[in-house]
Each structure stands twice: as structure tokens, then as C-alpha cells.
Simulated scan of single mutants.
Amino acid sequence: MAGKIRLTKSEREIMDVLWEKREALTSSEIIKSSINKSWKDTSIHLLLRVLLKKNIIEVAGLKKTTRNYARTFKATMSQYDYFFQEDFQTMDLDRKIQFMKIIIENASLEELEVINSILCKLYS
């Protein structure tokens, strides 16, 4: 990803819906799936336009609605990638270590072997 992407609270709420649903959604479907949203339904098109400009979503196609067709949108960045570029990078070292410790303590033996393999490749 070229530059760091910053999302407002409203933009993040829309992205959380797209990440959770893991499929392309119309603006109406996003509104219906947005519980406790901080934005008004009438703002959806403005918010989607901003997310398109930030290249964090893209138009995935069209979907037939009751009387016409609506564009569908999907995320171009995974929730994990966003977390690591936004949240993880701003953590101090102690919080990062605590976070990684929790991951390691809850990982299966197979997952730990994959982690070990990655570390060996990076630092050999």
C-alpha cells in the first residue's frame, strides 16, 4: 500500500460492515447492516465516494434491486492490513509485545510452526 490510509469514525463503520460481511454490498445493504452508526443514511453516497477516492473500496459490479440496479462495493484492503498499518504501528513496544504474546499463547502447534518458519526465513 503506497501511503497510510486514515479513516474517520463513519468511514471505519462502513469498512467494518464490508469486512464483516466479506462480500460486495450495495449502499442499501450497508445501511441495513450498520448497527449503531454515527452517520445519517443520506450520507452513505458521500462516504462511499470518499472511500473510493482513498482506494480502500472499489465498485465490484451491479446488483438487481426491486426496480433497478445498484452498484456493489467491496474492500480492497483487508481488515488485518488496516489494523497493522493503523493500530499496530502506533502501539508502543510493550503493547506490541503483549499483543504478540497473546497471539502466540493462543496459537496451535501448527500455527506456531508456521510462525517459526516465517521467522527463520526472515532472520537467517
Rank of each mutant, 00 (worst) to 15 (best):
19 W>F: 08
109 L>V: 10
13 E>M: 06
70 A>C: 07
45 H>I: 06
86 E>T: 14
16 D>M: 12
92 D>S: 13
39 W>I: 03
18 L>W: 05
45 H>K: 12
78 S>T: 15
114 V>D: 08
32 K>R: 11
82 Y>H: 14
10 S>H: 06
78 S>C: 01
35 I>C: 06
55 N>W: 02
120 C>K: 14
107 A>T: 09
100 M>C: 15
73 F>G: 01
46 L>A: 12
86 E>N: 15
16 D>H: 11
103 I>N: 06
56 I>Y: 08
113 E>S: 11
46 L>W: 11
94 D>A: 12
20 E>Q: 12
1 M>R: 12
51 L>P: 02
4 K>C: 00
99 F>R: 04
35 I>E: 12
80 Y>T: 12
32 K>L: 08
21 K>I: 06
105 E>I: 03
24 A>H: 06
82 Y>Q: 06
43 S>C: 01
25 L>V: 08
33 S>C: 03
114 V>E: 13
42 T>M: 02
112 L>T: 01
5 I>Y: 03
117 S>I: 00
9 K>R: 14
92 D>Q: 13
10 S>T: 10
71 R>M: 07
90 T>N: 15
81 D>W: 03
5 I>H: 03
25 L>P: 02
36 N>A: 10
104 I>R: 12
70 A>S: 15
108 S>M: 10
78 S>I: 02
71 R>D: 04
101 K>G: 06
12 R>F: 05
29 E>R: 08
26 T>V: 07
78 S>M: 06
98 Q>W: 10
101 K>R: 10
7 L>T: 07
92 D>G: 14
78 S>G: 06
3 G>N: 11
23 E>S: 05
83 F>W: 14
59 V>W: 07
12 R>G: 05
27 S>N: 12
20 E>I: 01
98 Q>Y: 13
18 L>H: 02
74 K>C: 00
3 G>L: 10
79 Q>L: 05
96 K>R: 15
75 A>K: 07
89 Q>H: 11
34 S>P: 01
53 K>D: 15
71 R>E: 00
62 L>R: 12
116 N>P: 04
123 Y>P: 02
64 K>V: 04
